[in-house]
């Protein structure tokens, strides 16, 4: 379970575009490639839904 949490944090960091060298070494030594792919797709989906939520919010709020 721990590697999933780390993977998701890393993916979020990559969406922001900032990552420390230490985390990178940890990810590449212990992380598994398939875990990162799934985490990435999951986070993209979450990014899509959150932007859609933001849109609905903006539409109501800025009426």
């Amino acid at each position: 379970m721990k590697i999933w949490v780390l993977a998701i944090c890393s993916v979020m960091a990559s969406f922001l575009g900032v990552q420390s060298n230490a985390n990178r070494e940890r990810d590449f030594e212990h992380g598994r490639f398939s875990v990162f792919v799934v985490a990435g797709l999951l986070m993209t989906l979450i990014f899509l839904l959150s932007v859609y939520g933001l849109v609905q919010l903006a539409m109501m709020y800025v009426q």
Partner: peptide, 14 residues
């Protein structure tokens, strides 16, 4: 270097 690698990797999906 790490930020560059991770940012470029995020483009693959975004």
């Amino acid at each position: 270097y790490a930020s560059m690698v991770y940012a470029v990797a995020s483009i693959a999906l975004l």
